[in-house]
Amino acid sequence: MASHKVLVIDDSAVIRNMVRDMLPKGNFEVLEAKDGVQGITLVQQERPTLIMLDFLLPRMSGWEVYQKIQEQPELQSIPLVLMSGRKEEVTEKLTEPFEYFEFVQKPFDQRQLIAAIKASMSKAKRRPGVVTTSTSTGDANAEVAQLKAQVARLQTEMAALKKQQAQILAFIKQKLMNK
């Protein structure tokens, strides 16, 4: 029995299948929506435990889906991972730091996906109005979770920078060898 219901809203079947394949087997029931209208309908009907939302969608954009979710307090507490190949499109509408959702840049690998999911769950718990136990231990745990999410995000950024550096180095080597 799946313990988490994940809704993947993306117009690319490749991305939807990739997310399904990257999630640990048996723990997740994956629901799919190919556009924003279908996505918001499934959010309201299914009440998933996690939403993975592409920012550029047909019929209703990811931005519009995000706004609809924010209009409904009972949906705001659902952890959200925004996905896009161009982060600047997201930051045009939503300024960083992303306080109540996580962002993952396409293409992403399994480690980046899992880190984004964990960070989104942590951020959703910190959202005002979300019912959590509030004790000094709870506050310390929330702070530790926040720091862990920040470390995970920094590790993801470092990995991306290392990858870019390796690509630049390979490009330079190739150009030097062609001289």
Rank of each mutant, 00 (worst) to 15 (best):
Ser3Trp: 12
His4Met: 07
Leu7Arg: 02
Leu7His: 01
Ile9Tyr: 02
Asp10Ile: 10
Asp10Pro: 04
Asp10Met: 07
Asp11Tyr: 06
Ser12Tyr: 05
Ser12Phe: 00
Val14Met: 14
Ile15Asn: 05
Arg16Glu: 01
Arg20Asn: 03
Arg20Trp: 04
Asp21Leu: 11
Phe28Met: 09
Ala33Pro: 09
Ala33Cys: 05
Lys34Pro: 02
Gly36Asp: 13
Val37Trp: 03
Val37Met: 08
Gln38Gly: 09
Ile40Ala: 07
Ile40Lys: 03
Val43Cys: 13
Gln45Leu: 13
Pro48Ser: 00
Thr49Met: 03
Phe55Gln: 07
Leu56Ile: 13
Met60Leu: 15
Ser61Ile: 01
Trp63Lys: 10
Glu64Arg: 04
Gln67Thr: 08
Ile69Asp: 11
Ile69Cys: 05
Ile69Ala: 08
Glu74Tyr: 03
Glu74Arg: 10
Pro79Asp: 01
Pro79Lys: 08
Leu80Tyr: 04
Val81Asp: 00
Val81Tyr: 05
Met83Val: 04
Arg86Asp: 13
Lys87Gln: 15
Glu88Phe: 10
Glu89Ser: 06
Glu92Asn: 06
Leu94Gly: 04
Leu94Trp: 08
Tyr100Lys: 02
Tyr100Leu: 06
Phe101Met: 06
Phe103Ala: 07
Phe103Gly: 00
Phe103Lys: 00
Gln105Met: 13
Gln105Leu: 11
Gln105Trp: 08
Phe108Cys: 00
Phe108His: 01
Phe108Tyr: 00
Arg111Leu: 07
Gln112Gly: 13
Ile114Trp: 15
Lys118Trp: 15
Ala119Met: 08
Ala119Gln: 05
Lys123Val: 08
Pro128Gln: 04
Pro128Asp: 05
Val131Tyr: 07
Thr133Cys: 09
Thr135Ile: 05
Thr135Tyr: 07
Ser136Pro: 06
Thr137Gln: 12
Thr137Ser: 12
Thr137Ala: 12
Thr137Cys: 08
Gly138His: 05
Val144Asn: 00
Gln146His: 11
Leu147Glu: 09
Ala149Glu: 02
Gln150Leu: 14
Ala152Pro: 03
Arg153Pro: 00
Glu157Cys: 02
Lys162Ile: 04
Gln167Asp: 11
Ile172Asp: 12
Lys179Tyr: 10
